[in-house]
């Protein structure tokens, strides 16, 4: 590459955090440009080559094994944001290490079981060669409006763990990305994890990306939804998130509010889908027009909601329902056998 830079290769997390700390704090006189973390490099390297990024110093975090992997924790020692005690959420949390690759999302059993939307996004993320390098943290750090993992993480109420030498803070994904390629990450902070509460069993999520081709597509628009409801279709929680239709991935709150506490009929889903389309603030670009994007957001939202409501109701009637049909009864019994 034409561009020149220094490359730091920390061997431990603490070494990495020290390298990220401001020069003054490290006892150095110069207050040069911040150190830029690089992991999979699938965005950083093309940006370096094209001159869009000109960092004086890069720091490779791809060798930090401690940042890799997906686990479930039922009690969080650090407690929850807002001073709530840890473990408030009965189902615990799923924690994705910041260095976890997109390919790992596709093979991980916790993601398969609890975060269908995230798995579906990983399956259409760039291409297999890129998925073996690109990380979840990097996708969020890049803060593209089209970041594929963002809408699923938004509907999962995910948070980003930002760690510096002076401590750790959690930022909701929604507050993390503040503009095109802009995040609230401070120069001394590293994204060390992403976590979300384990969704209850009577919930379902899904993601759909509209691209101009089947693989290696940048989304024209994308939608993720999550619904928690009982066997009668009474909605306890609804989340709808949209990608590529605003400067950042966004939640369609008016649409969510329309569903919350209501029985999820086709007419209600249709109304929520219209509100989701209204929440979109798309632009015309080479991938699609604003008018097209806004209209298709409504269509995709309606289809996804219809599918997840159906799934969540089925699960509810199997495990929590009062009067399941004989067919559902036998299915539920079979499921129990499979689990035992």
């Amino acid at each position: 590459m034409q561009v020149e830079f220094e490359l730091l290769m920390p061997k431990t997390l603490s070494e990495a955090l020290t390298m990220l700390a401001p020069a003054a704090e490290r006892g150095l006189a110069d207050s040069s440009t911040p150190v830029m973390p690089i992991a999979g490099g699938t965005n950083v390297i093309p940006d370096l080559r094209d001159g869009r990024l000109r960092p004086a110093v890069l720091m490779d975090v791809s060798a930090l094994d401690v940042l890799r992997g997906i686990r479930r924790e039922n009690d969080l020692p650090g407690g929850l944001p807002g001073g709530l005690p840890g473990g408030r959420h009965g189902g615990g949390f799923i924690i994705i290490g910041g260095g976890t690759t997109i390919a790992t999302l596709l093979t991980d059993p916790l993601i398969a079981q609890h975060a269908a939307a995230l798995r579906q996004a990983a399956a259409v993320f760039a291409n297999p060669l890129v998925r073996n390098r690109a990380t979840v943290a990097g996708n969020l750090a890049d803060a593209s409006p089209a970041a594929d993992t963002a809408p699923p993480l938004l509907v999962l109420d995910a948070e980003v763990e930002l760690t510096s030498r002076s401590g750790t803070r959690w930022a909701p994904v929604e507050a993390f990305m503040v503009g095109v390629r802009k995040t609230v990450r401070r120069p001394a902070e590293l994204i060390t994890a992403i976590r979300f509460p384990v969704p209850p069993a009577n919930s379902a999520s899904a993601f759909h990306k509209v691209g101009l081709r089947k693989a290696d597509a940048i989304s024209v628009l994308s939608v993720a939804v999550l619904v928690e409801c009982d066997a009668d279709g009474l909605c306890h929680k609804a989340r709808i998130a949209l990608g590529s239709v605003a400067p950042t991935p966004i939640r369609a709150r008016a649409a969510e509010d329309r569903l919350q506490g209501q029985v999820l009929t086709p007419a209600l889903i249709e109304a929520a889908a219209r509100l989701a389309a209204e929440a979109a603030r798309p632009i015309d670009d080479l991938r699609g027009s604003a008018v097209y994007r806004q209209r298709v957001v409504g269509v995709v939202t309606r289809r996804l909601l219809t599918a997840v409501v159906d799934q969540a109701r089925k699960v509810s009637s199997q495990f929590f329902g009062e009067s399941p049909t004989p067919e559902e009864q036998s299915h539920a019994t079979q499921s129990h056998h499979t689990q035992s």
């Binding site: 390919a103 060669l129 073996n132």
Partner: peptide
């Protein structure tokens, strides 16, 4: 990272070698 012509197996995983720094 669009064309895959530079693909190699890196510790058993197929990756684009143009998107990996040699030091990595």
């Amino acid at each position: 990272g669009d064309c895959g012509a530079c693909a190699v197996l890196l510790n058993g995983k197929a990756v684009n070698s143009c998107l990996v720094l040699a030091w990595q």
